[in-house]
Design a protein around this nucleic acid. Structure first.
Lengths: 222, 222
DNA sequence: AGGAGTTTGTGAACGCGAGAACAAACCGGA
DNA sequence: TCCGGTTTGTTCTCGCGTTCACAAACTCCT
């Protein structure tokens, strides 16, 4: 029987809620560093930039970690969310494509502090194999299989040009990587069991441009 | 009278559709470069990684640009979407915070090719003011007001550390900037008329980690 | 010219997420 | 122990987005 009621919550959390949990977690870390021991849903909601009703509903999917009339214990809730997301454990990550963006990612401190450990930087260009970025040697892309196997890597980051991204993704999937964060501006084709999240810098700007155009349109047309 | 039925479509496009239009645009550019003159909704949907029914409904908000029994003229549809988004015009953009990420953004060719022109790179750190990134001088942050005014900048990009982000946002808003793309891992407080879009690298990884944990959980518990 | 085949555009049903509103539960003081 | 004040957890309703399914419209072939 397939774990019909797993002991520790984790039934099925709505996707929209999952996307907000890291935001709550960051807000809690900030509150904790400020020395706040307890906070209400209203305070935490303001810190996270959301509605307090939505926040409470989100947290209710994890369980009842608050106390009515009091609020939430900051450190306790912080741990519970971290455990739910899975950042209490250590996630080995490999980054492929060490251009400007890849280097920025490798240097980003927000990864390590949240349970992600960059175990390798790979690039197909031999000219980059001499480099050391963020204290890590840049290695040839061909070593992907060995590294992924040795470190049991489950998460891969693609920061290559668009043309190379699909090949990289195919190789990653073949290595047993089942979660991919894709910064290349292209649509990746992967098996259904592999999760892909896409971050496209120019798309975000275009969405802003659309709204900006609508704002100024009225004045210009008049 | 406030343009009650503007001649060229643009009634009110659902937010979810707006977010996908840039994806369609990129797929159309790719098809056009491959020499494809016409495509069906099914072909375009595959290229964009979406459902064909959704694609057709999205396009229907712009108008009837297809031909039944035939499909869409690639270049024509491409122009219509580009015009709707607003990338047929030129958008001056200022980037604040020229660390690793800011440099990556400045060098990103996807901006210029889509109508965005980086008019200035600003940084508060004097040590960076000697640098030239992507052919553009890095200038002191204090010049924001002058540059924003001289170039009529409406869109700003924040790539600073989290602690500086709110100050930068405040100054941007005071300059008349009404659209902000925020890469700093913090919640920005801005007036309602200012659009903010957030890109958080570590949040995306955390979402992947959550699903990854769920995948392996069953096997580990058994 | 007419019919078979193809593809768009849209009406309708369905499911998910957001927000309001409230009962249940807790704390502190008398 | 009881009561007022506070805050959580949850129910309910509403609106948006997705998907199905099909009529309308176009092309091509005979």
């Amino acid at each position: 029987m397939t774990a019909r009621t797993s002991p520790e919550s984790a039934r099925d959390i709505p996707e929209a809620t999952v996307a907000r949990l890291p935001v709550y977690l960051r807000a809690l870390v900030t509150l904790s560093e400020q020395g706040t021991g307890t906070c209400s849903s209203e305070e935490l909601a303001v810190a996270a930039g959301v509605n307090s009703a939505k926040l409470r509903k989100d947290l209710s999917y994890l369980g009842s970690y608050g106390t009515r009339g009091v609020g939430y214990d900051v450190d306790y809730l912080r741990y519970q969310i971290a455990r739910e997301i899975g950042v209490t454990q250590d996630w080995p990550v490999v980054i492929v494509g060490i251009g400007n963006l890849g280097q920025a990612l490798a240097n980003y401190s927000g990864f390590r502090s949240r349970g992600f450990r960059v175990v390798a930087l790979l690039d197909a260009d031999p000219a980059r194999h001499e480099a050391v970025v963020a204290g890590i040697d840049v290695r040839p892309f061909d070593e992907l299989e060995r590294i992924a196997h040795d470190h049991s890597v489950a998460i891969g980051v693609i920061a290559t040009p668009a043309v190379a991204a699909q090949d990289v993704a195919d190789r990653m999937v073949a290595c047993g990587i089942t979660s991919i964060l894709n910064f290349a501006p292209t649509v990746l084709n992967v098996p259904a069991e592999v999760d892909v999240r896409k971050v496209d810098l120019s798309i975000e700007l275009q969405i802003l441009a659309y709204h900006e155009q609508r704002k100024t349109q009225g004045a210009a047309t008049a």
